[in-house]
């Protein structure tokens, strides 16, 4: 089923009257790998959470795969920021991935053998099968992020949302994650990623949402990744970047 994966009309979000997201409207077609970029405090994570109705919005209409978010929740996988997780939680890597099967389990049902096998396959896909019995806090940052990607894969979702998946992640883990995200898109899934820095944004994504409270730019990487557009989002910080010799 083609058509827009997400369409957003005039989304507004505020914290105690301070506007964090101002009137964003856009529509993402199915099968894209989309990066949400913008300076610190631009409301990127807020935008993502408001889209998913995880925080209250002041105004706006969000349709996911043509329906309200409530109707399609089980077809969405969300990967939180790494520092939102308690890594001392008594849970093993495999059990953490197994949580990905929960959305499709009925109330009072436990994951069965086939669910565990499926979780193991997802772990294999991110190259973490040898760590299945470890406690999650024993892993490196990159390994932790791969485990959480495996959990999202276990959800068999059509839409993937990742909040800052590359923070504190080693290069090889980052490559693995990007490779899998690209595979997902080739399979017709839609992937939306909040990304903290501009470097590599043009390699990783095929569409970009450039945000600084308002929507500054949206479109293909070629359309958005231009100095004059980026400058508009980064305003003040840009003078500093010029000073230290960074050029875009």
């Amino acid at each position: 089923m083609k058509g827009p994966a997400i369409s957003i009309q005039d989304l507004h979000v505020s914290y105690y009257g301070n506007e964090a997201v101002k009137g964003v409207s856009l529509s993402v077609e199915t099968g894209n790998l989309v990066g949400i970029i913008g300076p610190n405090g631009a409301g990127k994570s807020t935008f993502l959470k408001a889209m998913l109705n995880l925080i209250p919005k002041d105004k706006g209409d969000v349709k996911v795969m043509g329906r309200t978010i409530k109707e399609v929740r089980k077809r969405i996988a969300y990967v939180p920021q790494r520092n939102d997780i308690d890594w001392d939680f008594p849970i093993t890597v495999l059990d953490a991935v197994l949580i990905g099967t929960y959305p499709h389990l009925k109330l009072f049902r436990r994951p069965k053998k086939k669910d565990k096998e499926w979780a193991m396959q997802c772990l294999q896909r991110v190259g973490m099968q040898d760590f299945s019995k470890r406690q999650i806090g024993e892993l490196s940052g990159g390994q932790q992020q791969r485990v959480f990607l495996a959990r999202a894969l276990a959800q068999q979702a059509d839409l993937f949302f990742l909040d800052e998946p590359f923070v504190g992640v080693d290069v090889s883990s980052e490559e693995t994650i990007v490779k899998i995200l690209k595979e997902l898109c080739r399979q017709g899934k839609t992937v939306i990623v909040v990304h903290h820095d501009l470097s590599k944004a043009n390699d990783y994504f095929n569409q970009l949402i450039l945000l600084n409270k308002e929507l500054i730019g949206f479109g293909t990487v070629e359309e958005v990744f231009k100095p004059e557009v980026i400058k508009k989002a980064y305003k003040g910080q840009f003078a500093f970047m010029n000073e230290i010799g960074v050029s875009l």
Binding site: K70, R73, K74, V79, F89, I99, P103, R109
Partner: peptide, 21 residues
């Protein structure tokens, strides 16, 4: 016993739990 799954996931990752409904 009956709500073990729900109690586990909301204790471990509340945002993910909310995201899937």
């Amino acid at each position: 016993y009956l709500f073990y799954k729900e109690l586990l996931v909301t204790s471990f990752d509340e945002t993910m739990a909310a995201a899937y409904g």
